[in-house]
């Protein structure tokens, strides 16, 4: 469909600053598409293709450690 070709369908780029991340798991627990996982006490982007760019992880990260583009 035409809508699927729009710019907003570009795959999300999720970046985690592991130096600032304190591993609270808030982003992992409340991601509606289950894109994130914990690894070694820090957030890890496991399934970026599933991301719908709802931005909730970025908005709720207390450590300024996660961004979604």
């Amino acid at each position: 469909m035409a809508g699927e070709q729009s710019a907003s369908k570009k795959p999300a780029v999720i970046t985690v600053n592991t130096v600032w991340c304190k591993g609270c798991e808030i982003c992992v627990a409340f991601c509606p598409k289950d894109c994130l996982e914990m690894e070694g006490g820090k957030c890890k982007v496991a399934r970026p293709d599933d991301c719908i760019k709802c931005m909730l992880c970025e908005l709720r990260c207390p450590d300024f450690a996660i961004t979604v583009e």
Binding site: K22, C61, P62, D63, F64
Partner: peptide
Amino acid sequence: NFPHIWCSGCGDGIVLK
């Protein structure tokens, strides 16, 4: 000054953002 002093999961960083 980052990473900030607040504990893991503290809401203060969320308010600041």
